[in-house]
Structure formats: structure tokens, C-alpha cells
């Protein structure tokens, strides 16, 4: 064949083929897609309302005002929704395992994890990401942000790291599903519980919660800590103010844990299951 194709184009062709078919299929059921978009939007709004209702009764929570918590909620929900859009279907692994569809992945010449990740995409989560984005922008406008190059860099780095961290949480959970199967809800405690935790000011947590959702699953690094750093607020116990710059480290750590979990899971599947 004569067409000049770069190695990148060739290498990504299988994944692009699957993903574009998924997108076309979702858009072809127009009525369903609209319902999905609306409900996803509602989920975001309801979650924001849950935070907002608390501030009707108090002025500050965990040292943050409402405009400041909007930044935390916005960063957390934006990052989670984007990760959910691209990685959320990893939750379906138990179904794949029960139906034996995972075996089909073994018959294709791509890495298993990449196949699983690129096997689907949920465009409807875009609506929820918009709620997060709107909350973030509102918060940034209303809160007293000292704008500088560093502030913009911090925001960008934190948002990208947050997406990566949540994505890794989905992969970590998928690895654990190889063992749990029926007990998949246990991982929800940390993936979806993680999202809930990420939208809270970590300053309200006790020490055990700080260890679990501050560091082991570094949820505080996706939104709260960068916000504290951005606004120049004082840190809390175990969490100094500068820690917000370390979001990329948290993402790398979570991915290392996720890949390890996936490896152990696959090894178990090949060796033990049947």
C-alpha cells in the first residue's frame, strides 16, 4: 500500500476503530442518548446541591468558604467525570468475567488492559463534567485567587493529575475484581467513595481517613490540596500547604498501584480461575 502512515497512526488504529464505533453507536440511539445526558447532568447538579445545602446552614466548613469549596468540588468532579468517561466501563469487568468475554480479548494481538480501557467510552459523562467545570469556573471567579503563571500551572497540572488519579482508581478496582467478582461493591467504597471524599475539604477528616483517602488512595491531591495551595490557605495536620504541588506524584503512585493490581489480577485469572 502506498499511503504514508506514521507508526503512531498504525499503532493506534485498532483502538481508534473500536472507540469510533462506540461513539457512533451511542449517538445513533438519539432518544436514549438525550436521556443519558440529562440524567448525567442531574447527577452532577444533585451532588453540587448536597454540598450547597450544608452551606445554607454554616459559613465555613473545614476552613473553606462556599466559593472556595466550589473550586474543590469543581476540580474533583471535573477530574472524576473525565476519568469516568474514558475508564468507567472497567467496572463491567465482573460481567465480562462471568460471560467469558474477557477470553475474546486474549485472542487479539493487543495488551489486555489497553483493550479493556478502549473497549468503550461514555460520552454522557460530558454533561456531568460540565457541571464540574461550571462549579470550578464560578469558584475561581468569586474566590480571591492571586492570579499568576504559577497559579495557572498549578490548576492545569492538578486537573490533569486528578484525571489520571481517578483513572488509575478504576484500573485498580478492575484488577481487584478478578478476585472479588460478586463482591465488586467493596471496590466501589474506594472508587465512588473516593470521588465523594475528593469533593470534601480533607481538613474535616480524622487521621485514619487522612491516611486512607489522603495518601493511600490520594484523593485529597485531586482537589482539596491544590485548592489550599492555590488560595494560599494554611495547611492542616499531616497536610502542609505546599503539598498541592505534589498531585503528579500522587497520580504516578496511584498508577503504579493500579498496574500492580491489574498484573496480580490477570495472573490470578490465568492461573486460578476457570
Amino acid at each position: 500500500m502506498a499511503d504514508p502512515t506514521s507508526p503512531l497512526v498504525t499503532l493506534t488504529r485498532p483502538y481508534r476503530a473500536v472507540l469510533s464505533s462506540r461513539i457512533r453507536s451511542q449517538r445513533s440511539y438519539r432518544a436514549n442518548f438525550t436521556i443519558d445526558l440529562v440524567s448525567s447532568l442531574l447527577v452532577g447538579i444533585v451532588e453540587l446541591a448536597e454540598v450547597g445545602v450544608l452551606f445554607l446552614n454554616v459559613d465555613r466548613l473545614g476552613g473553606l468558604e462556599f466559593t472556595q469549596i466550589l473550586i474543590v468540588f469543581g476540580l474533583a468532579d471535573l477530574a472524576f467525570s473525565v476519568a469516568d468517561l474514558a475508564f468507567g466501563h472497567c467496572d463491567n469487568l465482573p460481567t465480562y468475567l462471568r460471560a467469558g468475554t474477557l477470553d475474546v480479548f486474549y485472542l487479539r494481538p493487543q495488551p489486555l488492559l489497553l483493550q479493556l480501557i478502549t473497549s468503550n467510552i461514555s460520552l454522557r459523562r460530558l454533561a456531568r463534567a460540565m457541571v464540574g467545570l461550571a462549579s470550578l469556573v464560578t469558584g475561581l471567579v468569586l474566590a480571591d485567587v492571586d492570579w499568576s503563571f504559577a497559579a495557572v500551572a498549578l490548576l492545569l497540572v492538578s486537573a490533569l493529575s486528578g484525571i489520571a488519579t481517578f483513572a488509575a482508581m478504576f484500573v485498580w478496582a478492575a484488577g481487584a475484581q478478578f478476585f472479588l467478582i460478586d463482591g465488586a461493591e467493596a471496590t466501589n467504597a474506594f472508587v465512588y467513595g473516593g470521588r465523594y471524599a475528593a469533593s470534601q475539604p480533607a481538613s474535616v477528616w480524622n487521621r485514619p481517613l487522612k491516611v486512607v483517602f489522603g495518601f493511600f488512595f490520594p484523593m485529597a491531591f485531586t482537589a482539596y490540596l491544590p485548592t489550599v495551595t492555590l488560595l494560599g490557605l494554611p495547611g492542616t495536620d499531616l497536610m502542609p500547604s505546599w503539598l498541592g504541588w505534589c498531585a503528579p506524584l500522587a497520580a504516578i503512585f496511584t498508577w503504579a498501584m493500579a498496574l500492580l493490581s491489574w498484573r496480580i489480577g490477570v495472573r490470578h485469572y490465568r492461573g486460578g480461575g476457570g
Binding site: T10, R13, P14, R16, A17, V18, S21, S25, A99, G100, T101, D103, V104, L107, R108, P109, Q110
Partner: peptide
């Protein structure tokens, strides 16, 4: 060919499944 589990995409026309598989196998 597993008699019990499908390699095709259930919501797509047969032709599209072939196109995707061709991409998968390069």
C-alpha cells in the same frame, strides 16, 4: 470460534465488526 461467546459487537452491523477486527489485526 467459541460457540457460546461472541467476538462481534452486538449493536453494530456485521460489516462494521469486520472492519474493526481488520483494524485490530492490522
Amino acid at each position: 470460534v467459541f460457540g457460546q461467546r461472541t467476538q462481534l459487537w452486538w449493536d453494530l452491523p456485521v460489516r462494521e465488526s469486520f472492519t474493526i477486527l481488520a483494524a485490530i489485526h492490522g
